[in-house]
């Protein structure tokens, strides 16, 4: 019921915005088309400005993923996470999630297929995938777009949130699904 409602909200949100923003502007006597074009002009330059940051980050992540370094990293942290009751199968997803959105989605899809959507691992993977964002992508693109070079504690905070959501996913699934 709640889900149906929320799905409808998602479905209607963009048409609603496309309707209400120009209509409100017209009502406020703004030259709607001219002002739209004026703002739209920044679109191209903004997209191009983030390009070098995207390429830089994607290359490092791409090489890391392709090399198989991930498996070694998992071997190192497995003993610790195992003690905490975290299934080793979900570690690749936890490591991939902050780095690559498409990579994480791929792993989630594979895990849901392999272990089944209603298995414990399938549920943890589903929860994990939805509960955080691609931290590195967001940080490099957002800071890059305005030329910020020193991120201060943004990386620490972002990663702490990822780790928390990851641990919470496992813990909450234990509680809810047993």
């Amino acid at each position: 019921m709640m889900i149906d409602f929320l799905t409808q909200v998602s479905r209607w949100a963009i048409p609603f915005l496309l309707f209400i923003i120009p209509a409100y502007a017209y009502f406020k006597k703004v030259n709607v088309y001219e002002v739209f074009v004026e703002g739209a002009q920044e679109g191209f330059t903004t997209a191009i400005r983030i390009l070098p940051y995207l390429v830089g980050m994607l290359v490092a992540i791409g090489v890391f993923r392709a090399s198989g370094a991930m498996e070694y990293l998992i071997k190192i942290i497995y003993p610790v996470t195992n003690l905490l009751g975290i299934p080793g199968e979900v570690l690749p997803l936890a490591l991939m999630r902050p780095l690559s959105g498409s990579g994480a989605l791929g792993i989630t899809a594979e895990m849901i297929q392999t272990y089944g959507p209603d298995s414990f691992i399938g549920r943890v993977a589903s929860t994990m995938q939805g509960s955080t964002d691609t931290t590195f992508y967001v940080l490099t693109v957002y800071f890059g777009s305005v030329g910020i070079k020193k991120f201060r504690h943004a990386v620490t905070v972002g990663l702490a949130a990822d780790i928390t959501s990851f641990l919470a996913s496992v813990f909450i699934c234990h509680l809810v699904f047993g």
Binding site: L17, K28, F36, E38, G39, A40, G43, F44, T46
Partner: peptide, 20 residues
């Protein structure tokens, strides 16, 4: 993302100018 960016930045300008 150029297309999406252009569309939303145009709409955002409208939202700004109109006081929304």
């Amino acid at each position: 993302i150029i297309g999406v960016m252009t569309l939303w930045l145009g709409l955002l300008k409208l939202a700004e100018k109109s006081g929304l």
